[in-house]
Design a binder for these strands. Structure first.
Lengths: 167, 167
DNA sequence: GTCTATATTTAGATAGAC
DNA sequence: GTCTATCTAAATATAGAC
């Protein structure tokens, strides 16, 4: 099999970190432990980002800022694929502690958005939150798969106008 | 590594098909050839589905039907993950013929939807098409990751109303 | 703490009996 | 056409020198 499955190996990580492979095991007992550390870092980063939106006075401004922020984090080097989507499909198949890490990550975003729509007085806050997160995840998938950053920016603007249009 | 990376192995496929592993090589020379066959089948299935929407008289009816159809194909057994999303993140990383298969699959859907919006007289047909496909992909990811089929049906209804609201 | 060498495990692929 | 046994390659993991 030529270069088929292409999941990230310890050799890849070691090369990126410019250390020998065996060295990794001084810091992490297993590869799973390393993956867990990555997920934990990603989670704490997301929490920090969500918290940072508190600086805006209105929930509408917070939501609009979140679109822009996701847009930036989405336009990473495309060869790494849609970060959240990849994480979800990788973690989703497991049967250990990390099995639900992807779900927790998504729930974090949905709950936050729901809270903002609720503060805007929308009784359909949950549906709107789900739709917003789904739109962001979906456009991230399209942008990365089609290798076209403009898709993300155009959809971001559309979502921005959509949020503006809400009561 | 316990059950960490969890990509689909030939052993998994053989077990699902209830045949011994070696038997697979009678039908496919390599695993890549098997993956290619799966992608080809998926593509032809998508083409057939898009073609079947022609039975509706108006583009609006076609688009609305496509949401319902995607909703059904999305509520598969959740342990397999979001089908299209998984396919994209798996194929995306390759460097062979299949590298762009995921992109072609998505483009097929976007082009079709663009055509329908265009027939509706929308000058922003491309943006709407991208948004629709992204919404479907995103809600598929959420539905599968959060293991909640209701997310998909509620978002489908929302998209249905959204299409109805367009001029 | 960092490195090399090597052991272990797993997945892809082949050979050959039936 | 189907099966078992086995080979090879690659990735995870460990041992032990420095």
């Amino acid at each position: 099999m030529s270069k088929a499955s292409e999941r990230t190996t310890l050799a890849d990580i070691a090369q990126a970190a410019d250390v020998p492979v065996g060295n990794i095991y001084y810091y992490f007992k297993t590869k799973d432990e390393l993956v867990g550390a990555v997920v934990a870092a990603y989670t704490s980063d997301l929490r920090a980002r969500l918290a940072s939106f508190d600086r805006h006075r209105t929930p509408k401004a917070r939501l609009k800022d979140s679109c822009v922020t996701w847009q930036m984090s989405g336009s990473l080097p495309p060869q790494y694929g849609c970060p959240m989507g990849t994480l979800c499909s990788e973690l989703d198949k497991r049967d250990d502690d990390l099995e639900h890490a992807a779900a927790e990550l998504l729930t974090l975003s949905v709950d936050w958005a729901e809270q903002q729509f609720r503060l805007m007085g929308r009784s359909d806050a949950r549906d709107l939150a789900v739709a917003l997160v789904a739109a962001n995840q979906g456009i991230s998938l399209l942008t990365n798969t089609l290798r076209d950053p403009e898709l993300m920016s155009r959809e971001s603007h559309r979502l921005d106008r959509w949020i503006d249009s809400l009561a």
